[in-house]
């Protein structure tokens, strides 16, 4: 088994009736890192939500880490989600708890021993360069630091798969590049990483395979940087 994620002719339609994904098929191999790109509303986030079992495909099969998601029972969803590391654009931290408590949460949910949790959390914070900030509340941190707390929380359980939805959307370019390099480093030690983004410059700086969506379908086109949009328009590219 080398495919960690496999989409087989997957469609997704909002309960309202609007099609978001149509006939999408792709596979991500174990240990691969890939980007999902495309304009807003192309379905990038929906792909990640489907993988994380936050919603269910209207048609088609999705297999993630050997689990067919269409047969996943609702009561087994939490256990499945515990095997993923999720990173969000808006960080999704708990703002009334310290950095340490935020990062420790996935381990607390699993019921690890106190001493082990402390060791693991410090290791994860060390990996994102926030070792000195354990006792700080997230709101006193910069956006980049908050996102690194979010990443530390995603990697603290050592998941085989990290899903990141616009992880750099709220960060300045320098911070964004640092975060993307961080994902590449996790990937180098064997973690499969899937990042939804439209930060073209970052993709160019950390190049990996690209899955490009447009209007809910995978296309061969590639995302364009803002500086090249005009040029492309004059060539009739778009």
């Amino acid at each position: 088994m080398t495919d960690l994620i496999r989409f087989d002719r997957v469609s997704y339609r909002y309960p309202g009736g609007q099609d978001v994904l149509a006939d999408v098929s792709f596979a991500i191999a174990q240990g691969e890192m890939a980007y999902i790109t495309g304009p807003s509303g192309a379905g990038k986030t929906t792909v990640l939500r489907l993988i994380a079992a936050l919603c269910r495909a209207t048609r088609g099969q999705i297999v993630v880490m050997g689990q067919n998601l269409s047969t996943l029972k609702p009561r087994h969803v939490p256990a499945f989600r515990q095997r993923l590391g999720l990173v969000f654009q808006n960080f999704n931290l708990l703002y009334d708890r310290t950095v340490f408590d935020n990062v420790a949460l996935p381990l607390v949910i699993r019921g690890y021993a106190h001493a082990d949790i402390g060791r693991r959390v410090r290791a994860a914070l060390d990996a994102v360069g926030l070792l000195g900030k354990e006792k700080v509340l997230p709101l006193t941190l910069s956006g980049g630091e908050q996102q690194r707390v979010g990443i530390a929380r995603a990697i603290v359980t050592k998941p085989a798969l990290i899903l990141a939805d616009e992880p750099t959307g709220n960060l300045d370019p320098e911070m964004a590049l640092e975060v993307m390099r961080g994902f590449a480093r996790f990937n180098e030690v064997g973690v499969t990483v899937l990042v939804a983004t439209h930060a073209i410059d970052l993709i160019e700086a950390v190049p990996r395979r690209i899955i490009h969506l447009e209007q809910g379908r995978i296309t061969d086109k590639h995302p364009l940087a803002a500086s090249k949009l005009k040029e492309a328009a004059s060539h009739g590219h778009r």
């Binding site: 607390v108 699993r110 019921g111 021993a113 693991r120 994860a124 990996a127 990697i155």
Partner: peptide
């Protein structure tokens, strides 16, 4: 690197249960 560390053993359910209830 932290991520390369070996996986942890979970304590048995009684220890987990006690720890979780004490925490809450």
């Amino acid at each position: 690197m932290a991520i390369a560390e070996a996986g942890l053993e979970r304590p048995n359910w009684l220890a987990r249960w006690t720890q979780e209830h004490l925490r809450v």
